[in-house]
C-alpha cells in the first residue's frame, strides 16, 4: 500500500489527480475500522491531516465555510450556537475519542446512509465544496448522495469544505440507537425551520440507500405553519408531518432493525422534533 502525506492542499490535489484510487484519510474513524476488519484494501492512502487549512472554518456572508477536517468536537464547541442541528448530530457520534478525531469530511467521503451529519446538512441546505486540479465546485447536499456509500464526486476530487447558513430558526436532530451512547443510527432525522424564507428543511438518515430529504413533508409543513402568529400546532399537522417523513423513507430489514420499526420511529421523531422546534420558535 502506498502512503501519501501531502503538506499542502495543492499537493494533495496533485496526488489525487495522479492516484485517483487513493483513499483520503483524515480522522480515520471509518477507514481504520475497514482496514482492521480487512473489508477493504486501498492501493494507496492519502493522509490529509498535515493540511492546516482543512481544519479551519470561517464566517462567510450569512453562514460558514467549514473545512472538511474540522472535528465533531470542534463543531460542537465552536459552531454549536450557530449550527445547532449539526452540533446535536455531532454529539451523537461515537465516543469522545471518536468525536475528537472524526470529521464531517469523513462522513461525506464515506457517504454511508447512517452517517450522523447528513440529516442536518440536508435540512440546512448545505453545499459541499469539492476540488481537483481541474478546479473547485459546490454540490448541494441533496445532490451529493448517490447510493449506498457512493457520492457525486469524481475520482480526482477531494472534499475541501462544506458551506452552510447559520440557523435562522430552530433546528433539531434525533437518532435511534439501541443503546444510549456510542451507537450507529438505526434511523435518524434532522429538522430545520427557516422563518426567513418560510420554508422547512428535513433530512432522513439510515432509512434509505442514501440520506435524503422528506420533500413532501417539507412542503406540507411550510404551508401549515403560521409563522407570523404562531399558535400551538394542531395534532393533525404533527401526525401528518410524521406520516410524510416516514413515507419519504425506503428502509430495509437489517441487523440493526426492521423496516417497519424505522418507518414508525421516523414518524415519532418527526412529530417530536417538530414539537420542540415549534415550541422554541413560539417562545422567541
Amino acid at each position: 500500500m502506498e502512503f501519501f502525506k501531502p503538506a499542502t492542499w495543492s499537493e494533495a490535489l496533485a496526488i489525487k489527480a495522479e492516484h485517483p484510487d487513493a483513499t483520503p484519510i483524515a480522522g480515520g474513524t471509518d477507514i481504520m475500522v475497514e482496514l482492521n476488519f480487512d473489508v477493504r484494501r486501498p492501493g494507496a492512502l492519502l493522509d490529509l491531516t498535515e493540511i492546516a487549512e482543512l481544519r479551519e472554518w470561517s464566517a462567510v456572508g450569512d453562514g460558514f465555510r467549514v473545512g472538511s477536517g474540522v472535528s465533531y468536537a470542534r463543531i460542537i464547541e465552536e459552531l454549536g450556537a450557530s449550527l445547532p442541528g449539526l452540533a446535536m448530530a455531532a454529539r451523537t457520534v461515537g465516543s469522545p475519542q471518536i468525536r475528537n478525531r472524526g470529521t464531517v469530511g469523513g462522513n461525506l467521503g464515506a457517504a454511508s446512509p447512517a452517517g450522523d451529519s447528513h440529516p442536518p446538512l440536508l435540512a440546512g441546505a448545505a453545499d459541499i465544496e469539492v476540488a481537483s486540479v481541474r478546479g473547485t465546485r459546490r454540490i448541494p447536499a441533496a445532490e451529493f448522495y448517490k447510493g449506498v456509500k457512493r457520492n457525486a464526486m469524481e475520482p480526482d476530487e477531494l472534499i475541501a469544505a462544506f458551506h452552510i447558513a447559520a440557523a435562522d430558526g430552530p433546528q433539531q436532530f434525533a437518532k435511534i440507537g439501541t443503546r444510549n451512547a456510542m451507537v450507529i443510527a438505526v434511523c435518524s432525522f434532522g429538522l430545520a425551520l427557516h422563518p426567513s424564507t418560510r420554508t422547512v428543511g428535513t433530512g432522513v438518515g439510515s432509512a434509505a440507500p442514501t440520506p435524503r430529504r422528506a420533500s413532501d413533508a417539507e412542503t406540507f409543513l411550510a404551508g401549515e405553519l403560521e409563522w407570523d402568529s404562531p399558535g400551538p400546532l394542531r395534532d393533525s399537522v404533527l401526525v401528518r408531518f410524521g406520516e410524510l417523513v416516514a413515507q419519504a423513507a425506503s428502509p430495509i430489514d437489517d441487523v440493526r432493525g426492521t423496516a417497519d420499526y424505522r418507518r414508525h420511529a421516523l414518524s415519532v421523531m418527526a412529530r417530536r422534533t417538530l414539537g420542540w422546534a415549534w415550541d422554541s420558535y413560539r417562545r422567541n
Partner: peptide, 14 residues
C-alpha cells in the same frame, strides 16, 4: 443522559 435514547435526543420526556 437521564432519558431513554440518551444523548441521541429522542425524547424530552414524551
Amino acid at each position: 443522559r437521564q432519558l431513554p435514547g440518551g444523548v441521541s435526543n429522542t425524547t424530552h420526556g414524551e
